[in-house]
Design a protein around this nucleic acid. Structure first.
Length: 109
DNA sequence: CCATTGACGAAGA
DNA sequence: TTCTTCGCCAATG
């Protein structure tokens, strides 16, 4: 895997996703700055290192897009983090969506 | 260098 | 509401 600045940024971002939380491709794309499209995010994660929690990245519907080779793998990994799937095998983004690396949710001071 | 594809998303019909 | 089209960046052939 070539370490492009963009890819490295994506990897760092994904590693910043807390356990039990998920992010969408489009969201990461925006967080990066739009330099990479959602598809580009997937490209960056396609051959990433094992230390990257790629399983926390799902599509905008809350569904899994990696069922191609390991059907259920990502789902199992997420379930192991306490994430519950709906009957549609989708995650409730409203509840589990990661807000960002340092989302200023509440100004303490 | 040119064309196609890819772990996607949003908008229009 | 669902289906189709276009867009976006990078990699590969």
């Amino acid at each position: 895997m070539k370490r492009s600045p963009l890819f490295d940024r994506v990897h760092a971002l994904v590693r910043a996703i807390p356990r039990g939380r998920v992010a969408t491709y489009g969201q990461l794309s925006k967080l990066i700055g739009g330099r990479l499209t959602p598809v580009g995010i997937g490209w960056a994660l396609r051959g990433c290192d094992a230390r990257i929690p790629w399983h926390r990245v799902i599509n905008a519907r809350g569904g899994i897009s990696t069922e191609g080779e390991n059907p259920g793998l990502q789902r199992d990994l997420l379930a192991a983090e306490g994430i519950r799937f709906r009957a549609d095998d989708t995650v409730d983004l409203e509840a589990y969506r990661w807000t960002g690396p340092a989302r200023p949710r509440r100004r303490r001071t």
